[in-house]
Design a protein around this nucleic acid. Structure first.
Lengths: 239, 239
DNA sequence: AAATAGATTTCGTCC
DNA sequence: GGACGAAGTCTATTT
């Protein structure tokens, strides 16, 4: 089995350029490591002085510039960009642009220590569990997790304030709005639930009030206070 | 100048293991490219079948698994993890764990096409402009951007609902709360502003109402409706 | 360590 | 293409 990797250690700038260009043209994932500066201008603007970084260009137009720290790239370009590689003043210049919004990322390598191009085939999709969607399924299958006589009537029910996670009614026939969160919630989630309850109250112009229940593993103190103020409820449930 | 890169193309599993282990021990950024499977268990859980991916291990304990698409890694481990590399059944196994929360990521390579270790020195900090903080500075320097007689009195002023971006008063001496956003805002930002205004109203028990102003480049239709309902205001301002 | 909100958030889904 | 909200969000800041 032949390898689909093209790689060079301490390449000349011209060799690096040629490996990068060939890689980009062939739809490979291209990585460059070396001392570089980075300029970005678009939704915001940034500059980054000289330092060693790892740059990855994907065939979908993504660019990622990574330092030795952190999950997030220090600079990047989202999918959909077009790349151009050239040599200016003995430096390797990677120029990545997109429109809507107009954004440009320029990485300039004074020295390239390593360059590689990988032909990627990845047929698999990630199978993920423990999401908010899983939590919703559990509740629909077993509504008593919320309270004994809760009955789900709809998911993603539209209100004038947006779609509600789960809409249903309780044992007394009162309308109930559920807002689901897979992790501990703060004030924002309470605000979200309050908006939905208020909107549905108005949409239904019900004589009996609409109940709002926040469903999450736990709540912060401030969120709990806000829930109390607005007469909203909380049910503890792990995702 | 000597290179600080150690790299191998189509290494044996044992060679790959040794390069990775040496790299991790020496605080290098280590990259592995090849066919692998990925298992994750922690805040959620996921599995990913065989495919070609690029894996990066940083000296701060970050792991990133990238496919050929997307800005985000398909799997990852945040900073602070400890890594272990070993060989099991002729496969290279990278095991990354952390506590609090308990999380484990296991990447198993059937074949390694490329492995490299980079010694990174990056003394520079990113200089970024066009953030919400910059918008705030502009407003403090030129309060008339909000309205002719607006006077800022405090930033990050604490209320029972959290800290307010900018607190001030208008020409009539009425309290004003500003919520700043660097981009077009939806309903969530209105909810946030409403929480602050409500809390401050109560905190001050003012006879005249507290004004709330959303400052952003633009608003969505629904956000505009919500603003109107709650008698909140909007000022258009680019970051 | 927990809480709170920003982010060049990105990403998916629905309209 | 815009709008809306989730995310294993991550990250910085403050308590």
């Amino acid at each position: 089995m032949t390898s689909d990797v093209r790689a060079r250690i301490d390449p000349s700038i011209e060799t690096a350029r040629s490996v990068v260009e060939a890689g980009l043209d062939s739809g490979a994932v291209v990585t460059i490591f070396g001392e570089c500066t980075v300029e970005y201008d678009g939704r915001a603007a940034s500059t980054l002085g000289p330092g060693d970084r790892h740059v990855m260009c994907k065939p979908d137009g993504t660019v990622l510039v990574h330092t030795d720290e952190g999950h997030q790239p220090v600079n990047w370009q989202p999918p959909g960009c077009t790349h151009d590689v050239s040599i200016t003043d003995d430096a390797l210049v990677l120029d990545s642009r997109r429109d809507n919004p107009d954004e440009q990322l320029v990485v300039t390598f004074d020295a390239v220590e390593h360059v590689a191009a990988f032909d990627v085939t990845d047929p698999e999709e990630l199978s993920l569990s423990g999401t908010e969607e899983d939590l919703r399924q559990r509740i629909l299958e077993e509504p008593s997790l919320i309270e004994p006589e809760f009955t789900p009537l709809a998911t993603e029910r539209e209100t004038s304030a947006g779609a509600v996670d789960v809409y249903g009614e309780d044992g007394d026939g009162r309308a109930v709005v559920l807002e689901l969160k897979r992790r501990r919630v703060g004030p924002d989630a309470v605000g979200q639930l309050a908006r939905y309850v208020e909107a549905l109250q108005r949409d239904l112009h019900a004589d009996t009030g609409v109940r709002g229940i926040l469903v999450a593993p736990s709540v912060t103190d401030r969120a709990r206070s806000l829930l109390a103020e607005r007469e909203l409820e909380f049910v503890a449930l792990e995702p």
